[in-house]
Amino acid sequence: MEAIISLLTNPYYIQVVTMMGIFLIAALGLHLITGVTGQFSFGHAAFLSIGAYCSALMSIHLHTPFILNMLAGGLMAALWGVILGFPSLRLTGDYLGITTLGFGEIVRVVFINMKITGGAGGLAGIPRETNILLVYIVVALSIWGIYRIQNSRFGRALVAIREDEIAAESMGINPLLYKIKGFALGTFFAGVSGALFAHLMQYLNPADFGFARSFEILNYVVLGGLGSIPGAILGTAVLSLAPEFLRFVKEYRMMIYGALMVLMMIFRPYGLLGGVDFVQLYKRLKSRRKAGPTLPGNMP
């Protein structure tokens, strides 16, 4: 019992678990874009940074309450999501991927060159507002929100676009409009996550939001199982904790991490929980009906 209490109050675990929660919110956003709508986004970190800088600058210069700043960060990221999405979501597949990657790099360079963000030296002096409770309240809200979105008429339209854009279009869905809406929602979560990140770290540097971070978040979603919320959660938990657990192998750590990525993909190409639908699994367990799980047909 004592051990459990010390485990729960250990600031290191709290820090790691808080960080995990923050990235989980971003991963849920990307889940909506890539997992549900099937659109590639290799520039998710850019939206994190937009949310982070926007909320941090509001905290520093305007002294507005944190919840407001967090929402403003999310909305700012969503606004840029729309600005980027409107022209670029016409592109498909890898072309969209590379455009978002390029956008991410441009955002990073712009933050390096801006005066108000402290440039390459970074932005310090952000008040600490984030705590584990707040993060997990937001996580819970996000999971609930994404679940509701996914199972609404809107969410089913997004899935229809993922499965077959032309068929969806002929069913009266405007793919561009829906993709932009999905993209904006996904980037909103990224912005919120960035705001929480900024107020946890109290220091921001554009170098933290390069394409490496974008791919890290993509890894969370893909390795967990594209298209499944439990997958995104498991992927984030495993991968954001992996560097901490692999600490004992010291300098071989990143090598093993890279090799693990390859192996995981080879043995579970659909991700850890790819194709596993918990609701169906639960129903099946109840009715003891035997049928193979359905793999999503046209997953990107």
Binding site: G258, A259, L260, M261, P269, Y270
Partner: peptide
């Protein structure tokens, strides 16, 4: 397999090297 799987695998190779 899916489009994203080899991409992630490529990133893994890149980090490894």
């Amino acid at each position: 397999s899916t489009r994203l799987a080899p991409l992630i695998s490529a990133l893994g190779v890149s980090i490894f090297l």
